[in-house]
Simulated scan of single mutants.
Amino acid sequence: MSGPVVVGVDGSRSSLAVVEVAAQQAERLGVGLELMQVIGWPTAGAPSAIPSWDADRTGGRASSTGALAEAERCAHSAAPGVRISREVLVGEPENVLLAESHRASLTVVGSNGTRGHGTPRNDPLAGRLSARASGPLLVVRGRPNPAGPVLLAVHGTSTLREAAEFAFAEASLRGADLVAVHLRPVVATRPYGESDVASAAEDDEDFALAETLSELSKRHPDVTLRCRRPQGRSRRVLVEASSDSQLLVVGVRGRSRFGGGLLDPAARTALHEADCPVALVRC
């Protein structure tokens, strides 16, 4: 996809850190960076977004110009060669970013709130976008290890293909290893007669996983792939592995017919507890 990397700007210091990550990502992908400031619409029932030349009517554009200029300087410093555009829109941030995600190579947002190590953050905007965004969503959070691997959460074949393609591409662009962590649910006991059925299903999933990863490894011979089948609870395994990684990639099942969807446990854990940036990829 050749669309820009789209990132929201709100003038805060944490927002500038997100812009820096977005600029570096645009540089890796070889696409432009679009800085977008969204000013809340003052009345109910307004359109999802209007162009910046109308923002003057709300008095918002003047206050946004300085924030966007600072964000542009930050982006230029992080990735001098990236083509940058900026825009002020009026509307609800969630709706505007959702609309932009249709044409973006990647939508980048920050992780709101603060946390201590191992404690969930409250990420209202990131959480809502993760269930509805059309394209890949990068949530900037945690303390990434720049020398660490790209981590791929494998939690069922239905969430594997697109996420694995994204993870391999990212590992190649970053010159990093790729670690695929197979998060198989731990079941203490199964009802009588279900053991063979469950075992066969697991065998089918293993075959599909091996086939997909083998194919993608051939397409990306520069990427060293390592697979992990950890024992223990998936949530703890994922959080611990993220502490030494530079990116965690998680597949998100397709949206429901109502335009949203509930994240599965692996995606929720990644979004709220991972200790590195999280890429949520629609599958």
Score class of each variant (00 low, 15 high):
V179D: 08
L183D: 02
L178A: 05
L173I: 10
A164D: 01
R190M: 10
H182E: 14
E170T: 11
Y192D: 12
E165Q: 14
A167S: 04
V186C: 13
A171F: 01
F166R: 10
D196Y: 07
E194M: 11
L178C: 04
P185Q: 05
A180D: 02
A163R: 11
V197Q: 12
F166D: 09
V181F: 02
A169D: 13
T189V: 12
A180W: 00
A164S: 08
S172W: 15
A188H: 07
D177N: 12
V186Q: 09
A176F: 01
A171G: 01
V179H: 05
G175N: 06
V186I: 13
P185D: 03
V181N: 03
H182Q: 09
R190T: 07
E162Y: 14
V179W: 05
A163E: 11
P185E: 04
G193V: 03
A198P: 00
Y192T: 13
L178K: 02
L160D: 01
A164F: 02
A188V: 12
V197I: 13
P191F: 05
L183N: 02
G175E: 04
L160M: 07
P191M: 07
P191V: 09
V197R: 09
P185V: 08
A180C: 03
V181P: 00
S199I: 10
L173W: 09
S199Y: 11
A163Q: 06
L160A: 04
G175R: 06
Y192A: 06
R184E: 06
R174M: 05
P191D: 05
A188W: 14
E170W: 01
R190W: 14
S195Q: 05
G193Q: 01
A169Q: 06
D177P: 04
E165K: 12
P191I: 14
A171P: 00
L160F: 01
A163N: 11
A167K: 03
A171E: 01
G193R: 02
A180F: 00
A200K: 11
V197W: 13
A188E: 13
